Simulated scan of single mutants.
Amino acid sequence: MHLQTWLLFLLTSIGMSLSPGPNALLALTHGALHGSKRTLFTIAGSLLGFVLIIAGCLFGIGALLESSAHWLTALKWLGGAYLVWLGIKLFSAPAISMDLAVSARGDAWSLFRQGLATGVTNPKGVLFFTALLPQFLDPERSLVTQFVFIAATYSATEFAVECGIAVGATRLRPWLARSGRRFNRACGAVLVAIGAGLPAH
């Protein structure tokens, strides 16, 4: 990948990472509920999900989705249903405790799984990368090498953005201890709305 092409992809990645979506919202809620350090497990799962989407788009899933609308429809319903389930669960969650020992009890594997599932079932990510990645590929160069550069670049920008969101949410803990119930309900409602709206797009 030429330097100019990589710089253009870097700028595109930053823009995509900064755009609001379910993974950013999950980092926000987990940062508030479990602290920024525990949310690293969520972010790691999200990044793995995005890397799997990028790999799938580069190595064939994009063509599969283009050949059959049923696969895309199924992915939209699956991703939507998962986000609705997460939203309902968050909506009914109690306000956070100021006791870090209590609030940091989120199981690492559970946080990782939630991040992974949210990332890999995001149809907007599939559509975006399917449409975007061919613009940056050089047919004269190794596809595997280009995959490494693309996946590493996007993972770096997404990691920086989600970490920033999680740290910011952690600093809101005193306010969330007072108004956390409303925060949970608002974020839960947004997740449900995103999940319900995915199949329609």
Rank of each mutant, 00 (worst) to 15 (best):
L132G: 04
A108I: 00
Y154F: 15
R113N: 02
V192L: 06
L18D: 02
L10A: 15
L52E: 07
A108H: 05
H34E: 06
N122R: 10
L18F: 06
T39G: 04
S179I: 01
G35C: 09
V144T: 13
T39Q: 05
L18W: 02
L40N: 11
R178H: 11
A55P: 07
W175Q: 07
T39P: 08
A160L: 15
T73H: 02
G56Q: 11
A189N: 03
E140D: 14
S103W: 03
V84W: 00
T12W: 09
K124L: 06
S92I: 15
C163F: 11
A169Y: 01
A177G: 14
P134Y: 11
P134T: 03
A193R: 00
L78N: 05
S17K: 09
V161Q: 07
R38A: 12
L111D: 03
I150W: 05
P174Y: 08
V102Q: 15
P123I: 00
C187Y: 03
T42D: 10
E158F: 09
Q135Y: 06
G56S: 12
A160V: 15
F9W: 05
L143W: 04
R182V: 13
P94Y: 11
A177T: 13
G45N: 09
R185E: 03
V192R: 10
T39V: 09
T153R: 09
V84H: 00
G62C: 13
S17T: 12
L137G: 01
S68Q: 12
L78M: 11
F112P: 09
A95L: 06
G79M: 01
M98F: 02
L191Q: 04
F9Q: 03
E158V: 08
S67W: 14
F128D: 00
E158S: 13
V190L: 14
I96G: 01
S142L: 06
P174E: 09
A156D: 01
A131F: 07
M1L: 08
R38L: 07
